[in-house]
């Protein structure tokens, strides 16, 4: 470790203040060694420390929660896969709230429609059908 001259120590304090954490890393050890051995250096340090203390009193307001919320709102939305897109379509269409009544309605229709058709059904062929069969039968009657 090379030694530091008092003039350089004064320059370091002028630029970086009294906190060794702010001093240039390459010169920190030499500056601390000079500080340990020189009362004059310690006096200079006290002067620099008073300005540091005044600066440290300059607090600023922290960011608001509203700002954080705005940043989150502007953040990229998650990419959607086909499963998620399908799920979103399902919910857009009403989800179970719509599907349950629709399912019940289809069951009811399936049960009632055959009953309604049965009332109109008959075992006898329709008269028009019989007439048509008779008119279009061009084959000679076959008698065994």
């Amino acid at each position: 470790m090379s030694s530091m001259q008092p003039a350089r120590f004064a320059e370091v304090l002028d630029a970086y203040g009294a906190d060794p954490r702010r001093w240039p890393a390459s010169e920190r050890d030499a500056a601390l060694a000079l500080l340990a051995s020189s009362p004059a250096a310690r006096a200079q340090l006290q002067v620099a420390a008073s300005l540091d203390a005044a600066l440290d009193a300059h607090a600023v307001s922290p960011p608001s929660s509203a700002l954080r919320a705005a940043l989150i709102a502007a953040a990229p939305q998650p990419r959607r896969g086909w499963r998620q897109s399908l799920a979103e379509l399902w919910f857009d269409l009403g989800g179970w709230q719509l599907a349950a009544p629709a399912f019940a309605a289809s069951l009811a229709l399936g049960a009632l429609l055959p009953m309604w058709l049965d009332e109109r059904a008959t075992d006898l062929p329709d008269e028009d059908l019989i007439a048509a069969m008779q008119l279009t039968d061009e084959l000679p009657e076959w008698t065994p």
Partner: peptide
Amino acid sequence: GETAACGVLIDRHLPRLHALATR
């Protein structure tokens, strides 16, 4: 596409960046 990671980045850097811009 993990939105939660955006929150991590915000919480990690916003206070210092905001202080820098404010000063």
